[in-house]
Amino acid sequence: MLPMLTAIAIIVDGLGFSAWLFLSSVGLTLIYGVMRILNIAHGGFYALGAYSAAWSIGLYSQTGSTIALTFLLIPVAALVAGVVSGLLIERGILRFMYGKDEILMVLVTYAIFLVLEDVTKLIWGTDSYVAYQPAFYFGSIDVLGIPYTVYRFIVIGVAAVVGAALWWALNYTRSGKLLMVVIEDREVSASLGINVTLFFTVTFVVGAVLGAFGGAVAAPEISVTPGIGAEIIVLAFAVIVIGGMGSVGGAMIGAIIVGFARAFSVHVYPPAELFSIYLVMAVVLAFRPYGLFALAEGRKI
């Protein structure tokens, strides 16, 4: 049996990790689900979001004004970073490649990821950024003697809200329903007069903003350094593979599974941190080769 304190720590940290993972990977699964693009550049969006948030919080803090407003800076930074980079990439590169082989698109987005890495470096340099202010603004609360920042609980709440909002938008709005038609069959949707190109652009930008938001939300809790994009993409892959690529609900379940696996290993046997994530993934795939909520495939012959 685990000691009580460890169990509590695993639960709270597990939820915290899950929230962060969900925010960081839901854009990836959304873009895959709609556009059939496995977007490695998602790691780049995450980094852009983290840097722009950390940088703007840093600048703002120097003015000495109230820290409360930094909570506004986080989503704004993510929005600006995501919209600008997402639009540039989708309109400037990806739209010329639609209809190409899925695996080729992986290579294309990898190339974009490389470019984004250096763009980030060129803008913000190679030093690390720390923007802890928002994380401590609300202080911390004790859960059975272990102190946790209130910020962490806010992030958990935000992840839940984002998940619910996406679910509502996909299932209960007119655009969401039209999007389902686009996912089902691009050609038929186009002939029905649905503007498929617009849906693709919007989806990609939304995905990019979500990726940047994942980074921006994480920024106060981490040290923002070059390479965080390459790290997150690996975790995000694990999340969406477990959940089933293209499924928003799957991403949530995947994030919870990965988040708790990681929290468990961090508190019980830290060296196995990365290993535990992939162990869980291997176990899931052994039973469900394409994840928990895999998309169906049609008849071939």
Partner: peptide
């Protein structure tokens, strides 16, 4: 394990497997 997968899944799983070793060695 890998022979069950193709295309992007093969790409992602080969990546995942290599990162397991990365995690083990780094720690």
């Amino acid at each position: 394990l890998l022979r069950r997968y193709r295309r992007i899944f093969y790409a992602m799983l080969s990546l995942a497997v290599s990162m397991i070793l990365f995690g083990l060695l780094s720690s």
